[in-house]
Nucleic acid binder design. Structure first.
Lengths: 368, 368
DNA sequence: GTGAAAGCGCTAACAT
DNA sequence: ATGTTAGCGCTTTCAC
């Protein structure tokens, strides 16, 4: 019998240290019996080093020993303690993702993409939305810095405290929706300009430039700005400089769409117009008001949404919209993040994802 | 000068052990400089034990010392290493939540509730959807057992492998949507029966029982079964035993709603009927087909959805629906889970959350 | 190919 | 009130 067997078995049960931490097989409460690398080593009559090798670098172990150890591992249901592993390797295979909110089709789909990709790459995903923050003083439960290997942040508004924190904690980070790669941060951005141009040009096919409107989300929002910018440029290129009423900002909500449309209707500007909304919800709000006030879509009013959420195919008439590959955004963020985690010396990059106009019913048909 | 200062400083830099793990302040790559409890202890001229006490049990330390240590902690930006902590305390303050999918209003809202509650209780949330599984053999990346302190599982179909795993790993678990508290598992369930009864009775006010339909999701689904059951019972109570066409099962998708409605329309059963859909999406599908085939809602057809997602207020006519407090479900799950994590001896309980009929436009109005 | 041993950073018993 | 120390479970040199 190898000495390791003797040593461990003999030494441990007697040599009760002064510190008696979590139960090993404590009866009376429902603790996990928790089999450790020592248990495996003992049962397989090898040292813990060998067990470790079998798990992390099997080619350093003879096939025969490896097989025996594997068998014991299986029989005992051994799973390495991630805390102990992390203490040495400084890796948890957990990635954080911080979103401004996790509500609605948009974030939901993004998260789905991120989750799928993380799984594929054998990482776990720790989510955290910012929305519920700050109610109670400054106890900002930042997304487990120290535990996570990397963080994907979506920064909608300028420089949120979170991004600063991330920078300071020197943790691998990728930013969604803001191109910061010149500042040394990997980023994923969506090519808002392309889709916006296509949509605006599509509108201009049947609506005079002076009757085209952009109904955006919050003015501070990065996407909003790009979309508004591309809209304006396209109008200018067509020979019409839009006035201030043609480009407005509000919220990314259906309610804001309704508000805008109500105001527009009261100025009689709905009929004969074309509007590009900042997202599908806004577009839906506009469509609702139009319908309620007897303005026919698309005959009297053309409307195009943004994002291509399921909403777009749910409403009638079906909503033309600019598709944003939200799922791919989430997936790309994780892919890039993992890349960075596994090689921190790589050059910061920025992945651009395309947008494209999808024409459905709300923007086509016989001109008025 | 305390001896600890001498000991640590003198001993460590020279006594380079055989094992040289992760860089402490490795230049050349962008590692975190990582300040440890020792650094704080040194700088504050106390032992590491005192630093630990300041963080975990301040009342054991004199106010003066505590203040000094706190200052150093702040100056150095010290954050305890969660791996080292977890190794001893066996807690990570990370909770797992496993959902069949994370798509759509429903799961999105549930997740939002869970996230908010987790934050409130100072836990982190590790999500994982099952949908992306199993593509590549059996590499089931279970939700970080060993790392998480507890797991909230939503079991839609009978006994998924996940729930078994959870049981085996002896980790605190709460189950969503299936009452298992008799089997010793905390659970959160929604009182499907109440809302379903209300909805069915509401339908019966204007539609004869023989013209009432339940268009459910998957037959294996727990919620579906309860809803179908309550529907049938209510019909029976009103003196009509529903035939097999009146209670059907499919998917929780808009498409299934369309299919059902198409089939129904071809049998001329749409006009003059009342239908309770398994969820809002199905209801929307039915409404679309009805509209397309010229059946007016609510005049010729009454429809009620289930869940009260935003869809319900988006469509026209606005959808009557049975509200399910998805957000509260998520929050309650986390609350219960944390309770269990912090006291494993408590009796398993089952939290019931109510549902309630919300009457909007799709189910009321002048009878035909 | 395998084992011995150091030590990651921390908490908690024990000693003072 | 504070310090000393063992040890959580693991990975990894180093020696054989």
């Amino acid at each position: 019998m190898p000495k390791s067997d003797f040593k461990y078995h003999a030494a441990v049960p007697d040599a009760k240290g002064p510190h008696k931490p979590a139960a090993k097989s404590d009866p009376g409460n429902g603790e996990r019996p928790s089999v450790s690398i020592h248990d495996v080593a003992d049962a397989a009559r090898v040292s813990i080093a060998t067990v470790s090798r079998v798990m992390n670098n099997p080619r350093l172990v003879s096939t025969k020993t490896a097989a025996r150890v594997q068998e014991v591992i299986k029989k005992l249901g051994y799973v390495p303690n991630p805390f102990a592993q992390g203490l040495i390797t400084r890796e948890s295979r957990v990635l954080g993702i911080a979103l401004p909110d996790i509500y609605g089709e948009f974030y939901s789909e993004l998260l789905r993409g991120a989750d799928g990709e993380a799984r594929r790459l054998r990482y776990h995903l720790l989510v955290s939305s910012e929305s519920h923050d700050d109610q109670e003083e400054g106890r900002r439960a930042s997304p487990a810095f120290g535990l996570i290997d990397g963080l994907a942040v979506m920064i909608t508004d300028a420089n949120s405290p979170l991004s600063r924190e991330a920078r300071e904690s020197a943790i691998p980070t990728v930013v969604l929706d803001t191109d910061l790669h010149k500042r040394g941060v990997d980023s994923i951005v969506v090519d808002n300009a392309k889709g916006t141009r296509e949509a605006t040009q599509h509108l201009l096919e049947s609506v005079p430039p002076s009757r085209c409107y952009f109904v955006g989300g919050p003015a501070e929002n990065f996407d909003t700005q790009q979309r508004a910018g591309a809209f304006t440029e396209t109008l200018i290129a067509s020979g019409c400089t839009p006035d201030q009423h043609q480009v407005t900002f509000g919220q990314y909500t259906l309610e804001w769409g309704r508000q805008w449309a109500l105001a527009a209707a009261s100025h009689h500007t709905l009929n004969g117009s074309g509007v590009l909304a900042g997202n599908d919800e806004i577009a839906c709000g506009i469509m609702q008001v139009a319908e309620d006030s007897g303005v026919e879509i698309p005959r009297q009013l053309r409307v195009i949404g943004f994002d291509d959420t399921r909403l777009a195919t749910l409403v009638r008439p079906r909503l033309s919209t600019v598709r944003v590959p939200m799922r791919e955004v989430g997936a790309a963020a994780i892919r890039l993040l993992v890349q960075r985690v596994e090689d921190r010396t790589a050059e910061p990059t920025c992945i651009h994802l395309p947008t494209a106009l999808i024409i459905r019913e709300s923007s086509v048909g016989p001109a008025q």
